[in-house]
Simulated assay, not measured.
Amino acid sequence: MFEKIEIMKMASAMATHAAARQNAVAENIANADTPGYAARDLPAFEDLYRSEGSGALRATRSGHIDASATITTAPEVIASPGVTSPDGNSVSLEEEMVRSVEVKREHDLSLAIYRSSLNILRSSLGRG
């Protein structure tokens, strides 16, 4: 019942996006010394949510039935001219630290939205 509430779906999608983006940041940091490695990041959550918010069914796994659209949350190569090191690596540890803080803020925001929504539901039921 509560999974159909749009704000709950949005908070869940935001938390999932933050987890996937943190994974991309961790992968970039782990490959900071790998020659030829190109830094990756996910598109902004707002862009993904708007593009996927068509209301149609979406497949997140190949086994899903009757879902024509798929969620595209794969990390993309970041185009940062001038950041590439002599060995071809484009990871900047400073930029990755900033991205890590952005991801934490995005995750905290998703939890705050979820918590506030639950408090509103509890209050409407007379249990808050």
Rank of each mutant, 00 (worst) to 15 (best):
E76W: 02
G55H: 05
L93W: 02
E96L: 00
S54T: 15
K104N: 13
H107C: 02
A59I: 05
L125W: 06
D33A: 10
L111V: 13
A38E: 09
Q22K: 07
I65R: 10
L111G: 07
L48V: 12
D87P: 04
A44I: 06
A24R: 00
V77A: 13
D33R: 11
G128R: 11
P81A: 03
L125N: 10
L111A: 11
E96V: 02
A24L: 01
V101S: 12
G55F: 01
T84V: 13
H64P: 02
E6S: 14
L48W: 01
G88N: 07
A20N: 13
A112R: 13
M10A: 14
P75M: 01
N28T: 07
G53S: 14
D87S: 11
Y49F: 13
R50K: 15
A18M: 02
R40Y: 04
S62K: 10
I113C: 01
S117P: 00
E52H: 09
S90A: 08
I5C: 05
R122L: 13
L125F: 10
G82H: 01
S117D: 08
A38Y: 02
T72C: 06
S68M: 13
A30Q: 07
P43K: 11
A18C: 03
S110D: 08
L42P: 07
R105M: 14
R40N: 09
K9M: 08
S85A: 15
P86W: 01
Q22R: 10
A26V: 08
R50D: 11
